[in-house]
Nucleic acid binder design. Structure first.
Length: 238
DNA sequence: AATGGCCCCAACCGCCGTTTC
DNA sequence: AGAAACGGCGGTTGGGGCCAT
C-alpha cells in the first residue's frame, strides 16, 4: 500500500485546466507512456487516469452526440454477435469509445432487449408458464450453440430483471428517442454513410417485434446476414 | 419549493495480457 | 527467462440533472 502515492494523486472530475495541460503534453509527446506523460505534465493524476481522459473525452477524433440510427443498429447487432466486447464493438464505430457504447447499451438496449424477450414469450400463446420458460431456454441453447460455433463466443442474456429493471419496460425514454448533452455535435460523415436502404431496413427493425427473415431478431437470436454485416461495419472505417 | 427516485455518464477499479528491461 | 511496468478491457460506482409528486 503506497500511502504517499495515494495522497498525492488527484481523483474525480477533471478540471478544464487539467484538460488543457493534458492535451498540450499529448500533442508534444504523443499518446504513449502514460505514466511518464502524467509525470511530465505535472498533473497529479495517474497515467491510467490521463489515458482514460484522453481516450474517452479529449481525443479530437471522438464523435460526440446521440447515436445515429445506423450506429444503434450496429451496436445492437454486434452485441448480439459478440456480447460485452465493448472495445471490439467500438472499433467498428469510428469516433465512439467502448465506455460510451457500454453506457449506451446499459441505458438503452438492455431494456429494449428485455422488453423484446418478454414480447417474444408472449407470442407463445396458450402455453403454461413452465412451457414458456422451456421454449425460451430451447431458443437460448440453440442460439448459443450456433453463435459459439460460428463466431467463437458464448453469451447468456438473463430474462430476469436486473437492479435497474424497474421501469425498464416503458421507462422514461422510449428507445431511440433520446436527449443528450451532446445532441448538437453530430458528425456529418455518419449521415453520409447511412444509405436510404439501410434507413428502410432500420425502420423495420425498430418499429415492431416482428421476425423479418432479413434482419436480426433478438427474440429468436437468429442471424441471417452476420457475415455481410461484419463486412458492412468494417467499411465504416474505410 | 422541497424532496425523492430514476437516468445518464464520467471516472474509477481490478484483472489480465503485452511489452520492456 | 522472469520480474516489473504498462496498457487495455469489462464491470462498477458516484454524482449531477431531470422529472414526478
Amino acid at each position: 500500500m503506497d500511502f504517499k502515492k495515494e495522497e498525492t494523486l488527484r481523483r474525480g472530475p477533471w478540471l478544464e485546466e487539467e484538460d488543457e495541460r493534458l492535451v498540450k503534453v499529448i500533442s508534444l509527446l504523443g499518446e504513449r507512456r502514460w505514466d511518464s506523460l502524467a509525470i511530465v505534465s505535472g498533473l497529479k493524476r495517474s497515467g491510467k487516469s490521463c489515458r482514460l481522459r484522453w481516450m474517452n473525452y479529449l481525443n479530437p477524433t471522438l464523435k460526440r452526440g446521440p447515436m445515429s440510427q445506423e450506429e444503434e443498429r450496429i451496436i445492437f447487432q454486434l452485441h448480439a454477435l459478440w456480447g460485452n466486447k465493448w472495445s471490439k464493438i467500438a472499433r467498428r464505430l469510428p469516433g465512439r469509445t467502448d465506455n460510451e457504447i457500454k453506457n449506451y447499451w446499459r441505458t438503452h438496449y438492455r431494456k429494449k432487449q428485455e422488453a423484446q424477450n418478454y414480447g417474444k414469450l408472449f407470442e407463445w400463446r396458450g402455453n403454461t408458464g413452465e412451457e414458456l420458460l422451456h421454449k425460451y431456454k430451447e431458443t437460448e441453447i440453440t442460439r448459443t450453440k450456433t453463435t459459439s460455433q460460428e463466431h467463437g463466443f458464448v453469451e447468456v442474456v438473463s430474462m430476469e430483471s436486473g437492479k435497474e429493471a424497474n421501469g425498464g419496460v416503458g421507462g422514461r425514454e422510449s428507445f431511440g428517442v433520446m436527449k443528450s448533452p451532446y445532441e448538437n455535435r453530430i458528425s456529418d460523415w455518419i449521415s453520409e454513410i447511412s444509405t436510404d436502404q439501410s434507413e428502410a431496413n432500420l425502420s423495420e427493425d425498430h418499429s415492431s417485434n416482428s421476425c423479418s427473415e432479413n434482419n436480426i431478431n433478438i427474440g429468436t437470436w437468429w442471424f441471417q446476414e452476420t457475415r455481410d454485416f461484419e463486412e458492412f461495419s468494417c467499411s465504416l472505417w474505410s
